[in-house]
Nucleic acid binder design. Structure first.
Length: 588
RNA sequence: CUCUCCGUAGCUCAGUUGGCAGAGCAAAUGACUCUUAAUCAUUGGGUCGAUGGUUCGAAUCCAUCCGGGGAGACCA
């Protein structure tokens, strides 16, 4: 700890103020273990030969099994009755009860491993390995009788203790902020959360298996792109130092995959993390996952059949059924799904046929339905808005919507028979789009014109209009076979299939504003020595992770103000509360 | 960006019309050899998200800010 910090508070007091009593007890237990010659963080392998799940499944059928178990897990509950005790450990497959008996753990005179280590120095949250045998208690619960145990990891932070009886959960760890920020805790104490993520992986595995079986090649394309394209969205912009040029994080990988079709692959797909610099809500995270697939010599009709088949298989692989309960509804993914053209869908829900309307009439209809209309909207956008307002939310069962206005689909091929439309479909399910697909536009001259009309929309103020990609056009000029393309949102699909109401529930680490975490300050000089920042506050800045004057200048001043005073209060510092005016003088 | 709800002990939550911060679980100490939200006894622990204001007095009222949830705007 640097000298300027020592002058602030003596180290001992400094530390004890920040740790709760429970954390202090655990640190003391750690020391005591070491004094007893027990290493709380041993290095060597702990060999296991069973999991809680397989014991619970197989022992009831054959009581001769599991008489020499080695198993490891985290202590989740303990019920101690003097010389005997029950505990539960949780491993990756679930929980199982343990029975500890003093004279079995400690057959000799020395009862330390039971009386001191087990009863006093171990806590809920610690990870132990045990050896023993399976049996039934008098109450009939399958339990492991522990012969010996070993400390594998001492936990220094108290875990939230969630209890359950008759399927009623008590004191659930439920605060969304804490659950998302400390997902590891969420995963430890909320088994249904881990189940969601297991299902998500199964969905991805099932899809990949389906695609590989179809003979499509899984590929990787750039995340950092000099031009962003393939979707209508605003990008994240970054900078490459050596090239000294801006680069964008991809908003889609469509244009790269189509270059590969030009290059002669018949079918390529990629699970891609895409990034869109837009609002965040229940359905949008700045980074999200999409699977894009392009198949040569196919069209959108063919792709619709593929989507139905693929999603039906996923439902069957995950649940063994095509029917999934989602919120209030039972959604059935069984083929075939209902198909509507966009105009049919609008007519179905509004009884108005807008298929022949001009822009001014569409504006009137849109306004009537409460759509916010502005000058940047073209005809296609208006139709799309009307659909989004009056149809999409009401489509619960999986439904294909086909034949979109050309203005909204600059990468899709013109409809073979309907003027002004393109060969495009979306699958809508539970009121939300889950995929988007079209017969890909492979006429390079038409494609150039579409890009140019996108530039027009950009001039009208549409911030999401696409940019013109000359290299992509060059690729098309060499010739791309007729191709069907698909983008399917993995997060959206996972939400539906796991019955999760928000995207945060299907992302391990959803995007959040940064949290204040006190950094451990090591011995170093005051980085604010040559500034107007007082020494007392400088140490707090370092603890908040702000280690240089430039970092200070980049910080959000209101948040910093809040955080600094928060730390002052928490650490009971003997300095006056910081005024925002004073803070402002630091960054000037 | 707007509206709205929320922020109190490690966790889940109470806190009346402003009047000395409460409970359950968790923790500590002790008792208890088949418990299971184990039980019984005793004990410690929070300055109420931050700042400023009103007041004799603020967790409580007001303003601004920080963080989160929900709805909307925006957005495939």
């Amino acid at each position: 700890m640097g000298s300027y910090l020592v002058s602030l508070q003596p180290k001992k007091k400094f530390m004890s103020i920040q740790l709760s009593d429970q954390e202090m007890f655990r640190r003391n237990a750690l020391e005591e273990m070491r004094n007893l010659g027990i290493e709380p963080y041993p290095a060597e392998t702990y060999a296991i030969n069973a999991t809680s799940k397989e014991i619970l499944e197989k022992f009831p059928n054959d009581n001769s099994l599991y008489q020499d178990i080695s198993i490891a897990g985290r202590i989740m509950t303990r019920r101690i009755m003097g010389a005997a005790a029950f505990a539960e450990i949780q491993d990756s497959s679930g929980r199982i009860q343990l029975y500890f008996k003093r004279d079995d753990i400690c057959p000799g005179e020395d009862k330390t491993m039971y009386n001191t280590v087990f009863k006093r120095l171990l806590d809920i949250g610690d990870i132990i390995g045990i050896k023993g045998y399976a049996f039934y208690t008098q109450m009939g619960e399958l339990t492991i009788h522990v012969r010996e145990y070993k400390v594998l990891c001492k936990s220094l932070k108290p875990l939230p203790v969630v209890k359950e009886k008759d399927d009623v959960v008590f004191d659930a760890f439920s605060d969304p902020e804490q659950r998302y920020r400390q997902r590891y805790v969420d995963l430890i104490v909320n088994p249904e959360v881990r189940d969601i993520f297991i299902k998500r992986t199964r969905i991805v595995n099932s899809m990949r298996e389906f695609l590989n079986r179809g003979g499509y090649l899984e590929v990787e394309t750039p995340v950092l792109q000099p031009l962003y394209g393939g979707a209508a969205a605003r990008p994240f912009k970054t900078h490459h130092n050596t090239l000294d040029m801006p680069l964008y994080l991809r908003i889609a990988n469509e244009l790269y995959l189509k270059r590969l079709i030009v290059g002669g692959f018949d079918g390529v797909y990629e699970f891609s993390k895409d990034f869109r610099n837009e609002g965040m809500d229940r359905f949008h995270n700045p980074e999200f996952t999409q699977m894009e697939l392009y198949v040569a010599y196919k069209d959108y009709e063919w792709m619709m059949n593929l989507v139905e088949e693929m999603v039906e298989k996923i439902a069957l692989d995950v649940y063994g059924s095509t029917i999934i309960r989602v919120g209030e509804n039972d959604i059935d993914f069984k083929r075939p799904w209902q198909r509507f053209t966009m105009f049919e869908a609008i007519e179905h829900f509004t009884s108005i046929d807008i298929s022949m309307m001009e822009e001014t009439e569409l504006v009137a209809v849109a306004t009537k339905f409460g759509v916010n209309v502005d000058a940047s909207m073209g005809k296609g956008k208006l139709i799309d808005e009307i659909f989004g307002e009056k149809c999409e939310p009401y489509l619960i069962q999986p439904t294909f919507i086909t034949d979109y206005p050309v203005e909204m689909s600059p990468l899709a091929k013109k409809h073979r028979s309907k003027a002004g439309l393109v060969e495009r479909f979306e699958a809508i399910c539970n009121g939300k789009e889950i995929c988007n697909s079209f017969s890909e536009l492979n006429d390079p001259i038409d494609q150039r014109q579409r890009f140019e009309s996108q530039l027009e929309l950009g001039k009208r103020g549409d911030q999401e209009s696409m940019v013109l990609d000359e290299d992509f056009l060059r690729a098309l000029e060499y010739g791309m076979p007729p191709t069907a393309g698909l983008g399917i949102g993995i997060d959206r699909l996972s939400m539906i299939i796991t019955n999760s109401p928000s995207i945060q529930e299907v992302l391990f680490f959803p995007q959040m504003r940064p949290e204040v975490i006190e950094a451990h300050v090591s011995d170093s000089a005051n980085p604010f020595q040559d500034t107007v920042v007082p020494e007392a506050w400088a140490s707090i800045l370092v603890k908040l992770g702000i280690g240089s004057p430039s970092a200070l200048r980049e910080a959000n001043i209101n948040k910093l103000f809040n955080d600094l005073n928060g730390m002052r209060k928490k650490m009971k510092l003997d300095v006056a509360a910081l005024k925002i005016e004073e803070l402002k003088t630091w960054v000037e």
